[in-house]
């Protein structure tokens, strides 16, 4: 029997969502095939690669990071440099300084800082909170207001604060809303439904389904993404057709493999190489499972993942 290609053609597609404005616009999602299955049909937008920058400066002074950024801790400088990083397509600014248990920077100061970052960046912007839900809710509202018209992504609205974040970022100021759930298809769907019931347009939502490092419960991430894509494409489930964004580095940089110094585990070798490999392996696996965008830190990882995407599409 001659070879006959089996195909998985779907009638539905992932929403194509544009972020940023003017010459810094970028479209996420839009595909109607499984991740990288370009043999089944054309892929509207390739998966995107973002660079994570903490407003506290460089997270870790590794040789490769210093080499790329130079010895600056100024967040605007860092963002400018990151905008020119080979392979980088968007910036994800993390407002670590706002953490009430840390520097507790005021909302006004944070808003001013985000504004100058947005002006300095030549790539579209996502903004991630500090992890304290109460503070983040206020921050997100003020930032959305201050950056009205810039079409940034707010990461994220969660079960606890989706009403406020949805109303401010999504409804009042027309930003894109990141919907964050914890590695479960039903939770993801529920949050999307709640946001749309609030009035947020389906096409203005991006999902963060939750993440984990390879080796650390990553099977749940894979299965959640597999199931979400099958429901979105195969069953035309409009509540799950949002593009998926996955913060990778925030997970992979905090596991043992990335934290231990070489002195503590000589056979493991260079800590920087471990950080890079944990990040790049996890990012590739997230993309293979269905992420439409990954958020990374190390310049070597950004470059390699971007090359992998180009080669595959």
């Amino acid at each position: 029997m001659a070879y006959k290609q089996t195909s998985q053609k779907f009638n539905a597609a992932i929403n194509s969502v544009e972020i940023g404005t003017g010459n810094k616009t970028l479209a996420l999602g839009g595909e109607n095939v499984l991740p990288f299955y370009s043999f089944d049909g054309p892929i509207l937008n390739p998966p995107r690669v973002g660079v994570e920058i903490s407003d506290l400066g460089m997270n870790d002074k590794l040789a490769g990071m210093l080499n790329f950024y130079g010895d600056t801790q100024d967040v605007v400088e860092l963002v400018k440099k990151a905008s020119g990083m080979p392979g980088a397509e968007f910036i994800c600014l993390v407002l670590d300084s706002a953490d009430p248990d840390g520097e507790n920077r005021s909302v006004e100061d944070c808003v001013a800082m985000v504004k100058s970052v947005e002006e300095a960046a030549t790539l579209p912007l996502m903004v991630m909170g500090c992890g304290n839900t109460e503070k983040d809710t206020v921050l997100f509202e003020k930032i959305s207001e201050a950056l009205e018209g810039k079409n940034i992504v707010i990461l994220s609205a969660k079960e606890e604060n989706y009403k406020n974040v949805g109303a401010s970022a999504g409804l009042a100021y027309g930003q894109k809303v990141g919907a964050e759930s914890s590695v479960d298809i039903n939770l993801a769907k529920q949050l999307n439904v709640l946001l749309t019931q609030l009035g947020v347009n389906n096409k203005n939502i991006i999902m963060n389904l939750g993440s984990a490092t390879a080796g650390y419960g990553f099977e749940y991430v894979v299965s959640t993404m597999d199931r979400v894509k099958m429901a979105a494409l195969g069953q035309n489930d409009t509540a799950l057709q949002m593009p998926i964004v996955t913060p990778v580095s925030s997970e992979t940089w905090s596991v043992k493999e990335s934290l231990l110094e070489q002195e503590d585990m000589p056979e493991w070798g260079s800590r920087e190489n471990r950080i890079i490999d944990m990040e790049v392996a996890t990012a590739a696996a997230c993309l293979a499972a269905g992420s439409n965008a990954v958020i990374l830190r190390h310049p070597s990882t950004v470059e390699a993942i971007s090359q992998m995407i180009k080669e595959l599409i």
């Binding site: 490092t213 390879a214 080796g215 650390y216 419960g217 990553f218 099977e219 894979v222 299965s223 493999e257 056979e267 493991w268 070798g269 260079s270 190489n273 471990r274 890079i276 490999d277 944990m278 790049v280 392996a281 996890t282 696996a285």
Partner: peptide
């Protein structure tokens, strides 16, 4: 293969091939 490559890859494999 270096240790830095082995650590994430074997971890990933162990996850992917567990019984759900």
């Amino acid at each position: 293969m270096s240790y830095s490559q082995a650590l994430p890859l074997y971890g990933l494999r162990q996850n992917i091939f567990t019984d759900p």
